[in-house]
Amino acid sequence: MLKVEDLCYEYESGFKLKNINFEVKGGESIGIIGENGSGKTTLVKNLIGLLRPKSGKILLNGEDTSKMSVAEIARTIGFVFQNPDNQIFASTVKEEVSFGPQNLKMDNIEEIVEDVLKKTDLFKYKDSHPFKLSGGEKQRLALASILVMNPKILILDEPTSGLDLRNARKLIGIVKNLQREGRTLILISHDMKLVSDLCERIILMKSGEIIADGGIKEIFNDSNLLEKTRLDLPEIAKLSKILEFGIVFDPEELYRKWRASND
């Protein structure tokens, strides 16, 4: 679905993305992780066309994105930015969400918008002012305003940062529903618990390079790699590793393994 070939990018300040290669298949869920300044956001901005690669190619369904505008790419890749306040401008939630579809000149906007508002549990606020929404609701509004363009690939940048548990869970629930619909998910996060909750595959970045790409359990089991990138595993995974059960994220599964080993 999405293929990145030898992508290189360089900022004026000198920071570089070097030889990025990976492929995303339809329906996959990938976590892009790495320390601050490792190039996660730069990579994603290249994917959606806000930055253009210096060399290398990005193929979206086999088509080179270098000839596509950001708006054209947005039909397939939706990027939910970290700070919802950076995009709220309309005077009602409904108007805010319909901005994207209007730009893309989609049909049946009314219908699509209502549908998305229901999915993100914002329908009751459809005529309220977006600034009146709480933090969690604003985050869902940001998601809704991207989701409404019906992108096949959804990129989330720290979607739960600053949210309380209830709002974070609600958002995760919505994202899980989207995964079930078969949407491809790319998640940028420092929260390993969230990553392990949502993703099966991890792309690990350090200083502008991909240093590991593979299954989440495989990478979390590689102590060398963890030390190199100062990754902090979820507590449950640490415990299962100490007990030598490999990487387990589900407490019940860990309990079953423990019982089985004691019998």
């Binding site: 806000l50 950001v70 950076n86 730009n103 305003s145």
Partner: peptide, 15 residues
């Protein structure tokens, strides 16, 4: 800030 906002709106199809 203006750049971030412009980026966010471009990602919503603003041309």
């Amino acid at each position: 800030l203006a750049v971030s906002i412009t980026d966010a709106q471009k990602a919503r199809g603003l041309e």
